[in-house]
Design a protein around this nucleic acid. Structure first.
Lengths: 123, 123
DNA sequence: CCGTATCCCGGGGGATACTG
DNA sequence: CAGTATCCCCCGGGATACGG
């Protein structure tokens, strides 16, 4: 699978793409927000309520970032008072496999760490 | 694929695993180091040379983290002066699919961003 | 060679108060 | 409701110097 070694240029290209990806989804909130958008009601206050501990400041900032990266679409409705909906773009859907792999590995890793935490044996 | 909505508890579980994974591989250097370990010579100085801009301080710190997470094994050889080798553990190999997905998405995303950067049309 | 200790800066991000 | 503005703290991480 990774039996052969990578050449330096190969490795660098490999790495750049990975970094590009991490630059977008890294950080404390981005993924949580994207997952939250797959959950239903997506008005600002709804999202805020759904993500534990996030502040309006951070949510606002992160949503803007995601919009820049074309992962989120912002729609303003002319109600009174105004309501705003954030939706995941089709491009955001392409993140699904990434998030799935992260989830799978997160679970695997948790098991791994816990198994080693076992009491080694009685003395 | 993601047609059905997630229930709140489902979503939370989903999220915890993803966060677990990101906690481990997040940060500026972790992935670069893991990839570097798949490249061959893995003495401290070798790794340092292979990762542009990393400092000894950071490399040292990050290697310790990775060791805690059981992704890296540290071996000291009793030479003079001492030499130390770092190797990726089998558990680190399980990260391969994650990194692959990140790489794929990084490339996809780059294309997406560039295409939208095109001149929209002549006025 | 293989690191660690110290110093220091910038920015990520919380708390709170406020506006349209 | 949907955010912004301000203040402020903490720590990630660079530079440098040094010890085994």
């Amino acid at each position: 699978m990774i039996s052969e070694k990578l050449s330096a240029p190969e490795c660098t290209k490999h790495l750049m793409a990975v970094r590009d990806a991490l630059d977008v989804i890294n950080g404390k909130w981005k993924i949580q927000i994207i997952i939250a958008l797959w959950e239903g009601n997506t008005r600002f206050k709804d999202i805020e309520r759904r993500i534990p501990k996030i502040t309006a400041r951070m949510l606002s900032k992160e949503l803007k970032d995601l919009e820049c990266h074309q992962l989120v679409k912002r729609t303003v409705y002319d109600t009174l008072p105004v309501s705003v909906e954030y939706t995941a773009t089709p491009h955001a859907q392409t993140l699904y496999p990434v998030i799935e792999e992260l989830k799978k590995w997160g679970n695997l890793h948790r098991k791994k760490i816990l198994e080693k935490q076992q009491v080694p044996e009685l003395a």
